[in-house]
Write a protein that binds this DNA or RNA. Structure first.
Length: 570
RNA sequence: CGGGGCGUAGCGCAGCCUGGUUAGCGCGCCUGCCUUGGGAGCAGGAGGUCGAGUGUUCGAAUCACUCCGCCCCGACCA
């Protein structure tokens, strides 16, 4: 491709609307333009990057035995009513009626449609397993679209759905996808981790998220430095430290702690460590008060609490709500004699002679002992994991890092197939619902994540497999016949060898060409200029390392194509 | 939906508080000259219903009200 013919509007200045780096760079490098909130046009250069990701996804899905199809974006409400999601999905599902007053919606996901196809066409265990996927534009009417392609309302997604005869077979399908996903993100040249995840509203009980590691990620994840373990903060299991405190239980003692409400000030006042204090937090679980106990130096992990209580929502009670529920002002609440529902972090069970609120203003209790002085409804892992905790798998050191979710795989089980009466006849003649799995990749988000992970002050640094062009040739002086001839010759020869090349033949000054080349993030840059006139040499520069090598045209042609094909092969 | 902010040329902004002739600046764009290894220089030029509506006023980009759009934080979310 010749740059002079390409629709590639780059921007010298950053538009005010963009905050995160990938969004800014995508606007500046002519990837996208906004049409309305969370809705973007892909310009040729951005589309080329998107196609790179799509192609890798396609190849790996096909390799894993999945088959591509394409489902409608407009879907009838009736189908969604079968699974109850038409009511349940909320305002994110864009609903409308057509000219015949038929209720419809724009597909935010396609479980209903695929299940409908399969129940109509597949009836026997002999037809299974099957895995069908599509790469398609989804629409979700996000509360607040932001960050450009990272969280748009309209976005390109690959979604796959597997159908199996049994739970065991479904797990085999799941593992195949898990492997395929690892290959996909590896081939994209991204640093990522597969993390255990909460399966969320979509349902199911077996779930991994694929996170691209980048500073600007929306989620915090815990990764082990020694093994493969990685998990969401909400899911990361805390391993209880071995060894119990076997100190003799002392008699409870009430102590005056005037005005000491915070953990810190109580500890300072009584001369104890935060780890010797039982912190009592009052939450409203679906509106009803529950007291939660954790060690003074720990934080409650609300998602774990929510899951334990089996409620839809937990919220920390404010001072007034706390007083209304317990009759005690915040800061002096404790488990001893407390009348409301009580749960505790597992760690609390092993505490001896701890300090806790006395349920009386300005008083705390010393020598409080779980079991003797109070009972809880249940002990469970309820606290936030920290980097001081050991890896739950191998005991290694943990690190916290930010991640961008680019893929999510679920074992769905039979929830959809049962509701939609999608059944097959098994070898023993019995009728069974399909056991399903679903597997998503945010294709457009992968492009954004790749940029978040790979850029510098001058622009994008594309991983070679995702770059719209693998090489850019800068013709620094198109009017000089010798330079122009050399640049064209290089271009033609590289194209012949299968390299994706952009030839910058614009009538621009060299500075502008260098700046654009950096901004666009093309992995290899060849410069043909003055040095060619002087000694027949051109420059090859790596965008990533900045290393520059001078060589002749012949040398370049003999090394570059193989460098590129080696790098793309996995 | 709650909180905060912004809408003035394609992009980035000033002007608004304290109303008053032809609404400015930088970049980009067009023409010409010149220049060619990190977003050059000179000269000339095009481009605006100042987001929309209503009101206040002799007079509104400027003041008031309403609406619309966009951005950021929060709740929410593959």
């Amino acid at each position: 491709m010749r740059y002079s013919q390409l629709f590639l509007p780059t921007l010298k200045e950053t538009p005010a609307e963009a905050e995160v780096i990938s969004h800014r760079l995508m606007l500046r490098a002519g990837f996208i333009r906004k049409l309305s909130a969370g809705v973007y046009t892909y310009l040729p250069y951005g589309l080329a990057a998107l196609r790179r990701v799509e192609q890798i996804v396609r190849e790996e899905m096909n390799r894993a035995g999945a088959q591509e199809l394409l489902m409608p974006m407009v879907q009838p409400a009736d189908l969604w009513k079968e699974t109850g999601r038409y009511e349940k999905y909320g305002p994110e599902l864009l609903r409308f009626t057509d000219r015949h007053e038929r209720e419809s919606c724009l597909g935010p996901t396609h479980e209903e449609v695929i299940t409908d196809i399969v129940r109509r066409e597949l009836h026997s265990y002999r037809d299974l397993p099957v895995n069908l996927y599509q790469i398609q534009t989804k629409f979700r009417d996000e509360i607040r679209p932001r960050f450009g392609l990272m969280r748009g309302r309209e976005f390109v997604m690959k979604d796959a759905y597997s159908f199996d005869v049994s739970d065991e077979q479904a797990e085999v399908s799941y593992m195949k996808m898990h492997e395929a996903y690892k290959r996909i993100f590896t081939r994209c040249g991204l640093t990522f981790r597969a993390v255990q995840a909460d399966s969320g509203a979509i349902g199911g009980n077996f779930s991994h998220e694929f996170m691209v590691l980048a500073k600007t990620g929306e989620d915090t994840i815990v990764v082990c430095t020694a093994c493969e373990y990685a998990a969401n903060m909400e899911k990361a299991e805390v391993r209880l430290a071995a060894g119990e405190d076997v100190a003799a239980m002392l008699e409870p003692e009430k102590v005056e702690t005037p005005g000491r409400r915070k953990v810190e000030s109580v500890c300072e006042f009584l001369g104890i460590e935060a780890s010797q204090l039982i912190k009592t937090m009052v939450y409203l679980a679906d509106g009803k008060p529950v007291a939660v106990l954790v060690r003074g130096d720990r934080e409650v992990q609300e998602v774990k609490l929510k899951n334990l209580l089996g409620v839809a929502d937990v919220e920390l009670a404010d001072d007034k709500q706390t007083f209304d529920a317990t009759g005690v002002p915040t800061g002096y609440i404790g488990p001893v004699g407390l009348a409301i529902r009580l749960v505790a972090d597992q760690e609390v069970a092993g505490m001896r002679n701890a300090v806790a609120g006395a349920n009386e203003k300005n008083y705390h209790l010393r020598n409080v002992n779980p079991g003797r002085d109070f009972q809880v409804e249940s002990y469970a892992d309820l606290r936030q994991i920290t980097t001081d905790d050991p890896c739950p798998l191998c005991g290694g050191r943990l690190e916290l890092t930010e991640g961008i979710e680019v893929g999510h795989i679920f074992k769905l089980g039979t929830s959809y197939s049962e509701k939609m009466q999608a059944v097959f006849q098994d070898s023993d003649g019995s009728e069974k619902p399909f056991v399903m799995g679903c597997y998503g990749i945010g294709v457009s988000r992968v492009v954004a994540a790749a940029i978040e992970q790979n850029h510098d002050d001058n622009g994008i640094i594309f991983p070679l497999p995702l770059a719209p062009f693998q090489t850019i040739i800068l013709n620094l002086d198109p009017r000089d016949e010798q330079i122009d001839t050399a640049a064209r010759k290089l271009y033609a020869e590289l194209v012949r060898q299968g390299v994706e090349v952009l030839l910058d033949d614009r009538d621009e000054r060299p500075g502008a060409k260098f700046k654009d080349a950096d901004l666009l993030g093309i992995p290899y840059r060849i410069t043909v200029g003055k040095k060619y006139l002087q000694g027949g040499m051109v420059e090859l520069r790596s965008r990533k390392t900045g290393v520059v090598e001078e060589m002749s045209l012949d040398q370049l042609l003999s090394v570059l194509p193989s460098m590129i094909s080696d790098a793309i092969r996995i």
